Computed example of a mutant assay.
Amino acid sequence: MKLVATDLDGTLVRSDGSVSDYTADVLARVEALGIPVVFVTGRPLRWAEEVFEHVGEHGLAVVSNGALVWDVARHRPQLERPIDPALGLEVCALLREAIPGSVFAVETLDGIGLESEFLERHPVPDGARRGPIAELFDRPALKLLARHEELSPQEFWDAAEAVVQRRLVITWSSATALLEISGPGVTKASTLELLCADLGIGSADVVAFGDMPNDLPMLAWAGTSYAMANAHHTVLAAAVRTAPANDEDGVARVLAGLLDL
């Protein structure tokens, strides 16, 4: 093991949003052995920052499903893989025509911009932009969000995939019909691969943890991967190994066992 890659929500972070003292201690001990712990999350930067204190001295995190590698120590982007506005607006038009009721938001380094009909389930930062998607998508975006209030997540994903046909990468990690859309070829796995290449680490030496469909590419790429016991059924079906649930500090317990901590 030369690197640990872990998702946050539903994986490392408990259901109440906390990182337990036990997990924080294990992560610190893993880092002390010279093994970087990289958070690989669908969270935008503004939410990922809440747990950056636990990434250790190396200070790197993959956020927005691979659209951004953030240098925590220097508080600046190390790599950006955004969506071109023209392509993003083309996809929005296709989705809106094929799936009436679709509404959109965009995430950039500056924050979130939302259409007026987009019902966000999390607190929206003060000063967030509101308006039609054509006005919001006026610059490259780290993530395009599509929401539907009547379809299930799987129904929305299947319908969107049929329309978009890999122009952009579509995934999801929410209990609601919220699609997370990234640039061409941008996944947690592809960006983690770039990060590891810079560090001289191959996939065989990476241990990864995840729980939702947006983690599937990363779990398939890593040499050793674990689905959490509380994971989505598609992740459990694809998994060879299972870790205890996030509320049982599953990531930390597996790492402690692997490294005999």
Rank of each mutant, 00 (worst) to 15 (best):
K188S: 13
E80Y: 01
P184R: 10
G17F: 00
L259V: 13
A162N: 12
M212L: 10
F104H: 10
E161A: 10
V19I: 15
R96I: 04
P100Q: 08
D211K: 04
T41P: 00
C196F: 04
W47T: 13
L114S: 08
H232W: 12
D25S: 14
D84E: 13
V63S: 07
N65G: 03
S18P: 01
V169P: 00
T191P: 00
M212Y: 08
A93F: 10
H58V: 15
G111E: 06
L89W: 14
E90W: 03
D247K: 06
G257V: 03
S190W: 01
E135M: 03
E248G: 12
W157A: 12
G223F: 01
V4K: 12
F52Y: 09
W70L: 03
D71R: 11
E150Q: 11
P123Y: 02
H122L: 08
W172S: 09
L259S: 07
H58F: 13
E107L: 03
A197G: 10
L8K: 05
E180D: 11
P125E: 08
A227L: 04
P244L: 07
L142S: 13
L109K: 11
R46I: 13
G17C: 08
A238Q: 07
K2W: 05
A256I: 07
S225E: 10
E161V: 12
A105V: 06
T6R: 04
G223A: 04
H54M: 08
V254T: 02
V40K: 03
G223R: 00
R129N: 11
R147P: 01
Y22H: 02
A252L: 01
L216N: 02
P140H: 03
A227T: 10
W172T: 13
A159V: 00
L33I: 03
T224S: 09
C196S: 10
L236D: 02
E49W: 07
D211R: 03
D158H: 06
H122T: 14
L12N: 07
C92M: 02
G185L: 00
V4W: 01
